[in-house]
């Protein structure tokens, strides 16, 4: 029998990996990959809490559906911005986008 803590630990580890990717990658697409991993960690936590603490009422799973939809919207807009940035600045590295730096 797998305990609730096991699922939560996998979710926390996945969130940590995604956090590292979002903070440390130079490539903008690498940052987006890290953000997707963090979304998935949150989804694992939602579904695990739903299964163990409120079985029979899939509210947590409904929330996970919304997170998946919002992640899809975020990915579409983010990747479109990457393409627009590449067309204008000819770079995909986040540190080169320093127009607003004083």
């Amino acid at each position: 029998m797998v305990s609730l803590t096991g699922y939560l630990l996998v979710g926390a580890a996945l969130f940590g990996i995604g956090l590292f990717g979002a903070l440390a990658r130079r490539n903008i697409m690498g940052v987006l990959i890290g953000i997707e991993l963090m979304f998935n960690a949150a989804n694992i936590n939602f579904v695990a809490f739903n299964r163990y603490l409120h079985p029979g009422q899939p509210w947590g799973q409904g929330f996970a559906v919304f997170i998946i939809a919002l992640a899809a919207a975020e990915a579409v807009v983010g990747l479109t911005l990457v393409l627009a940035i590449y067309r204008n600045f000819k770079t995909v590295l986040a540190e080169n986008l320093n127009l607003l730096k004083g």
């Binding site: 926390a12 969130f15 940590g16 990996i17 956090l19 590292f20 903070l23 440390a24 990658r25 130079r26």
Partner: peptide, 20 residues
């Protein structure tokens, strides 16, 4: 592929995961 703050990011993520 990593910027100058990768060590701090690793430490931050590690602290976060161990707290959780």
């Amino acid at each position: 592929q990593v910027n100058g703050q990768w060590a701090w990011s690793l430490i931050l993520a590690g602290i976060f995961v161990s707290l959780l």
